[in-house]
Design a protein around this nucleic acid. Structure first.
Lengths: 242, 242
DNA sequence: ATTTACTGCGATCGATGTTCGCAGTCCAGG
DNA sequence: CCTGGACTGCGAACATCGATCGCAGTAAAT
């Protein structure tokens, strides 16, 4: 009766009661995975690669992790631990959430693979729970249903992800690596100028690549507007329709 | 000198000038992939599965598609073609974008795998361009920079995806399929009630599972608030900070 | 000391994306 | 009408990946 632990990895004890002392631990494994992903991207994080980055055999990892997705969960939670909460506690919920968003953004920029890793609806690890708790703390004085607050936080995270993804791809576009971005741009302009898409053509033509806003300022502005739209007073939600 | 076409699939001609008439075409392949994904999920869409759903050999697909990701692009574009634009043209940009968002939502609900397929920053196909054009048309009379409009649309799409993902997982939670949702809920409540997370505990306790709003009404309300926050008048963005 | 439970891991399985080469098919140009 | 070149379908195979199995060694519990 060796019922396998169908639980989440966070509910499973890290060390067993009996048996030899393990050579590694979850932290070292997660660190190795993060290092690999940071330098060579998510696809480079294979079980074998992580294993012999640790100097272990290919099958040894399965003593610590039930599946590759659990390894990704460890990695995600590890970089979520890099978030700092020292700038919170301003007393203004919008400022606190903005600080939180900035922290999340910088983590995503430092670990671009995080965007792909969290893209599939991944369960939340301990550090994500800490993040959630701080966000709810920031909203404690706000008069809104808990459900509304949780939804606002979820949407904030989605917006952060979208903005950061655009930023990452924009950063890579200037470099040498990518191929499909060129193809997409060529395709877009070709389609737009081939008639039948006048507004798109105008929008693409109206792009002024130089003299952009500071990326941080733009990020702040958009996050601010989304948050005020979501959590601001009710009369903002029924605007100039008239 | 058989330089392979490094272009996007949308820039590549579907049929060759010479040679035998192909047995299949991109539409049929995309349809087969969509059918497979609809019934058994995205992982079921393997090259072999699609091939012999079509009655073809495993390697024949590569005459139509350079890689599996291109097959996914075909599938994505195909379901994007299910979007209807008949309810647009109200003259009020918010109503038009809301109608667009509703259409996008229903497509995502009809094809849940779309969430995972578009999660990785995928290039846009012809039908996505049509979608973009309609969104820009709705915003034509609005006084804002093209860049702002494009960003607002991108964020709207991200919000739609987040809301729809929550809806899909909520729908599956009631059923038999998933395992990790239970584990996650158990983990969340255990963590929250184990102290150190008072606001989370309060928020989870404050959930009233019965008497929820209509999902459509909630969707409309959130999308409306996000859009007015993003594209509404400027004085909304500097709120009760006082 | 014996039992029990765990660890590291070589070998291996099954599945998947993709490539190669060949035989057959169809169109363009003469 | 014919012929050459280009394309098609596809069986076979390759590389790689996630995951499993079983065994020898080790540490704690009894």
């Amino acid at each position: 009766m060796t019922e396998p632990p169908a639980h989440s990895i966070w509910l499973r004890p890290e060390r067993a009661a009996r048996g030899p002392v393990p050579t590694f631990d979850r932290d070292r494994i997660a660190a190795a995975g993060v290092a690999l992903a940071d330098t060579d991207g998510l696809p480079a994080v294979t079980m074998r690669a992580v294993a012999d980055a640790l100097g272990a055999g290919p099958a040894s990892l399965y003593r610590y992790v039930a599946t590759r997705d659990e390894l990704l969960e460890l990695m995600i939670d590890r970089v979520n631990g890099e978030i700092s909460y020292t700038e919170l506690g301003s007393g203004v919920w919008l400022d606190d959430l903005l600080a939180l968003a900035r922290q999340s953004r910088s983590v995503h920029l430092a670990h671009p693979w995080l965007l792909d890793a969290t893209a599939t609806g991944t369960p939340v690890g301990p550090h994500a729970v800490t993040y959630l708790e701080h966000a709810l703390t920031a909203l404690a004085d706000l008069d809104a249903a808990p459900r509304t607050k949780l939804e606002a936080i979820a949407i904030l995270n989605a917006v952060i992800a979208a903005l950061t993804r655009a930023e990452v791809t924009r950063r890579l576009t200037g470099q040498t690596i990518p191929q499909w971005q060129r193809a997409q741009a060529e395709y877009l302009t070709r389609i737009a100028t081939a008639g039948r898409h006048p507004h798109l053509a105008a929008a693409l033509a109206g792009q002024t690549p130089g003299s952009e806003d500071s990326t941080e300022a733009l990020f702040d502005r958009i996050v601010t507007r989304v948050l005020t739209g979501l959590l601001g007073p009710d009369d903002l939600a029924t605007p100039p329709r008239s």
